[in-house]
């Protein structure tokens, strides 16, 4: 079985947020609760201040702290599904311990005050336990893997668009959006990226393009000191996070 990984080249990323929008549309997330977003950072001060940005999906860690803390095993790492970390929405009790334990802040309760007005939970009131009924709701639903419109009282996260990836032919080293045979199986953020800054493939396959990029361009993992060992790698300058300093 493949071990799916993502490579994000920060030298190519323009911070356009197309990936964020594609993710929102694909996964029917509420505004502001994007499973994948682009974070902006400022570093230094005038006149030498810099702006940096960093696309941030779930890192699908090899040793995920969120899995260890979950008291019900609702969060689990599925090695039969490429090592993706899922949340079983039928087991999640909404204790939010995984949100505390995730070093990357990529888990979303969403059953909270709206981040953007108007509150779409009121505009498109949810039925059948869903937080909301988005217009044109995606037909893909798999509660055991946290795929679909998020129900009330549970945590959600990026699934590497498993509902697409699972349909890919067995043994394929990379899912490249430029390959017409594979384009439908590529995660939404990778497929949409205008400057082609994202790559998706099998980290266990030495011939995969993602492995070559990581090897040839010194791919790094964020916050590697936490021991979580992400399956998402970054290339290029700026693949780090400035230490927090209050700005006021």
């Amino acid at each position: 079985m493949a071990k799916w990984g993502m490579v994000i080249d920060l030298d190519k990323c323009t911070g356009c947020q197309a990936c964020t929008t594609a993710c929102d549309m694909e996964n029917d997330t509420l505004p502001g609760e994007s499973w994948q977003d682009v974070l902006y950072y400022t570093e230094g001060e005038y006149p030498s201040g810099q702006m940096k940005w960093l696309p941030r999906p779930c890192m699908q860690c090899e040793d995920p702290s969120c899995v260890h803390v979950c008291p019900t095993r609702a969060t689990y790492k599925d090695h039969d599904a490429g090592g993706i970390v899922f949340i079983d929405w039928d087991k999640c009790i909404g204790c939010k311990y995984c949100m505390i334990a995730c070093p990357y802040g990529v888990r979303f309760f969403a059953d909270e005050k709206p981040l953007v007005e108007p509150d779409l939970k009121e505009v498109f009131a949810g039925s059948g336990g869903q937080l909301w009924d988005p217009p044109g709701q995606s037909p893909d639903t798999d509660y055991r893997r946290g795929i679909g419109v998020q129900p009330k009282g549970v945590v959600s996260k990026c699934t590497f668009c498993y509902h697409r990836v699972k349909e890919a032919p067995e043994g394929v080293p990379d899912l490249d959006e430029d390959d017409p045979e594979l384009v439908d199986y590529v995660p939404a953020c990778v497929r949409t990226c205008p400057p082609k800054a994202r790559f998706f493939g099998d980290l266990d396959n030495p011939a995969s393009n993602v492995n070559k990029l990581i090897g040839n361009k010194n791919g790094i993992r964020l916050k590697d000191h936490t021991g979580n060992r992400p399956q998402v790698y970054y290339l290029g300058a700026g693949a780090g996070i400035p230490a927090f300093q209050p700005k006021s």
Binding site: E33, M99, R107
Partner: peptide, 14 residues
């Protein structure tokens, strides 16, 4: 209101 009755969010989960 659901858990929107609370002021917790993705930053302060507890």
């Amino acid at each position: 209101q659901g858990h929107a009755a609370f002021n917790m969010d993705a930053n302060v989960a507890w």
